[in-house]
Amino acid sequence: MTVAISGYGRYSAIRDWHLGDVDRRGLRPASPESLSGIGRWMHETAVRDGQAVLADGIAHLFGQAECPRCASVFGIADEYASSHRPVK
């Protein structure tokens, strides 16, 4: 599975070697009011600096995605942070 937040779209999908991204599911962005911590800071900084596209991407990064295979919903930033923690 892949999660895309780019000029090509904002979605989760199954990445197929020959077909590209298939079974796309739209991401569910976090509302700016619900952001806290680093997400709030990043979003507010992007808005303050007139970077609307970046602010929108940050809202998606701190939002939720749906797995195309099992339909489970998960927090994108939380899952990324969890899977990239240093091994002790």
Rank of each mutant, 00 (worst) to 15 (best):
A65R: 08
D21F: 11
D21L: 03
Y11N: 08
I14V: 14
D56Y: 13
L19H: 15
L61H: 02
Q51T: 02
Y80L: 12
R10A: 12
G57D: 15
Y11F: 14
D49W: 00
R28E: 02
G63S: 11
S82N: 15
R48E: 00
I58L: 07
W17E: 14
V53W: 00
T45V: 00
Q64P: 00
R10K: 14
S82A: 10
S72K: 14
G20D: 13
S83K: 12
F74R: 14
S82C: 03
P29T: 11
R24G: 05
P29E: 06
A4H: 09
P29S: 11
I58E: 01
D16R: 05
I5F: 09
I58F: 01
V53S: 05
F74P: 03
G63V: 11
I58W: 04
R25E: 07
Y80G: 14
D78S: 13
H60D: 09
Y11V: 04
H18A: 15
A52Q: 02
H60R: 12
T45M: 00
F62E: 07
S72Q: 08
A46D: 02
V47D: 04
S83E: 07
E66P: 02
G9R: 13
A65Y: 00
S72H: 10
R48D: 05
L19N: 10
V47A: 01
I38K: 04
G75C: 10
F74V: 07
V22Q: 04
V22G: 01
R25G: 03
H60A: 01
T2D: 15
L54N: 08
A81F: 07
G39M: 13
A77T: 01
D21R: 14
R69T: 13
D16P: 12
H18S: 15
